[in-house]
């Protein structure tokens, strides 16, 4: 049984078809990658799953029940956490309080009081490596730290599925390695993951399977290495000329240098 099943989901914004009949499913414990050029609809897809957008057609099933059309807070409490590509911390709170909000509102079982939530926040801050900065106001955090905080806040919800929207964008190679370790560690604790990435090293490095979107349509799905060699994928990223040349040299190893810009927002 698939844990998350997306069936024929479509989403239009006026005359623009942002998503057309997207179908895929994620098994428990998987790390599932979603890639595609800018504007391919990756973030829109995440917004549909997390309930920020209503879908125009299709169904989204989570642990054998339909979550299509449920409000975002209900979906969150069913165990689906997410991060935003452009980080959205609660600016007037400290790092610790930010993480605590996730525990306070998002945990599926029972209601925590602020004191317990703050205590739980400490454990997730430890996991993402922000424990030393827990009393900082958010504005003192660097960009990589803000991304960690974004993950910490989602993790504090004790999600069974974590949707990560380009958490690696804008990080340097060392920081990417650290972030990859973090992803693996969270995954080992039994959290299924869906991650949107432009950094191909991440997709190949951790993902069990990957889906390529292009102009809102699913292009191909499969093992990351196979997917990245597919001529259609190379064409989508680099244009027809490179696809004809073929070969591993032409594969988009680092197809994007935009670093957390406004793609697909």
């Amino acid at each position: 049984m698939s844990q998350l099943a997306v069936r024929g989901v479509s989403k239009r914004f006026g005359g623009v078809a942002a998503l057309t009949e997207v179908t895929f499913s994620v098994e428990p414990g998987e790390i599932f990658g979603i890639i595609g050029p800018n504007g391919a609809g990756k973030t829109t897809l995440l917004n549909c799953i997390s309930g920020l957008y209503d879908t125009d057609a299709g169904e989204i099933r989570w642990e054998d029940r339909s979550i299509t059309g449920l409000p975002a807070h209900r979906i969150a409490r069913l165990g689906i956490g997410r991060t935003f590509q452009i980080v959205r911390p609660f600016g007037s709170m400290t790092v610790r309080e930010n993480a605590a909000t996730g525990a306070l509102f998002g945990q599926p079982s029972g209601r925590l009081q602020p004191r317990q939530a703050l205590a739980y926040a400490d454990t997730v801050l430890d996991l993402v490596g922000l424990a030393a900065k827990r009393d900082y106001p958010v504005r003192r955090l660097t960009v990589p730290d803000r991304k960690r905080l974004e993950v910490a806040r989602a993790l504090a919800m004790r999600p069974r599925l974590l949707l990560l929207d380009e958490v690696m964008a804008g990080l340097n190679p060392v920081e990417i390695e650290q972030a990859l370790d973090m992803v693996r560690q969270v995954n080992r604790q039994g959290v299924t993951m869906v991650l949107i990435e432009h950094v191909m090293r991440v997709i190949v490095g951790v993902c069990t399977r990957a889906l390529v979107l292009n102009f809102g349509r699913p292009l191909i799905e499969g093992k990351p290495e196979a997917v990245l060699r597919d001529p259609r994928v190379i064409e989508a990223y680099l244009g027809e000329r490179y696809a004809r040349q073929g070969g591993p040299d032409a594969s988009p190893t680092q197809a994007d240098g935009e670093g957390g810009g406004g793609a697909g927002q």
Binding site: G51, L52, A72, H73, R88, P89, F90, S92
Partner: peptide, 15 residues
């Protein structure tokens, strides 16, 4: 406060 700071972020953590 979460709503004031960012309403969508508040919604996806369960508010």
């Amino acid at each position: 406060l979460a709503i004031r700071e960012n309403e969508e972020a508040a919604a996806v953590i369960g508010v």
